[in-house]
Amino acid sequence: MQDDISREDRLDWYRRMCLIRGFEEEIHNLNKAGLVQGTAHLYIGMEAIAVGACSAMNSADLLTSTHRGHGHCIARGLDTGRMMAEILGRVDGYCGGKGGSMHITDVSRGMLGADGIVGGGIPIAVGAALGVRLKGDLSVVLCFFGEGASNQGSFHESLNLAAVRRLAVVFICENNLWALSAPFAEVTAGGSVANRAGAYGIPGEKVDGNDVEAVFKAVNEAAKRARAGLGPSLLECVSYRWEGHSIFTRQEIRPAEEIQQWKQRDPINRYRARLIEAKTAASEVLGQIELQVSEQISKAIQFAKNSSLPDSETAFRNTYA
């Protein structure tokens, strides 16, 4: 990825953030209609992190994701129809209905998988970096995880291992301030994820996770460093999830005024205003983009609904290679 941000980049980032938002909003509706198989963890409010970060990736780069993974998938360019089909448990889903929302994977785009275990993807990202180095590739691995995962042993073991082997990993902590019902400050000693980088002698930086360009710049720098063989970095992108922990969550224990405050810092509205103010695009141009996005989402839903539920026989396939 080049350092300069072009007008096309900016409009594309706006489009992708809108796509994530619209996609996630529709999951609410589909869930109410009883069409979602299992649960889903929505990314609404955090769109700038996935879009900013994935925009710093080259085509051969890789990423590992989390239980809250739809944003990363869309930002990386996965097909929204196949994603929605997976969430509805259909045969045309990325995993043929076997994975669901928490396990969407597309290795053809370097997306090594969402993950249902908090912190589970972190050592896998380190292993992927180890593997690509052995193969002689220059790929960088983006490793997404939440602030809750930064208290898992796997986080610390992985940062240490990646640092001593100088592996090409960019650790991206999405700090949305709440691990289900646990507030960040109450369960995280030291009050900062970024500062934990110091323990491993790697760069650590706190980033405004609601600013797509700030995220892009930080990840782009870290990726360049990794590509140059200088090892991993840790970025803490601070943001907020607007919705409950999952679509199953009934009780909201976070303060209503806190949620409202963060909605006022909406990464999409902020970026829209900035693009207009900087005369990057007129409101009508952005409106066109929004229209295209909602058409794409309608098509994705239609594709998913038209796809059939899997034949029960497929439950017994693909346990082993």
Partner: peptide, 14 residues
């Protein structure tokens, strides 16, 4: 944990 995870990740990339 990281050793096993590194095994999984490196196996995933071939």
């Amino acid at each position: 944990a990281a050793i096993a995870g590194a095994g999984v990740g490196s196996a995933l990339v071939g």
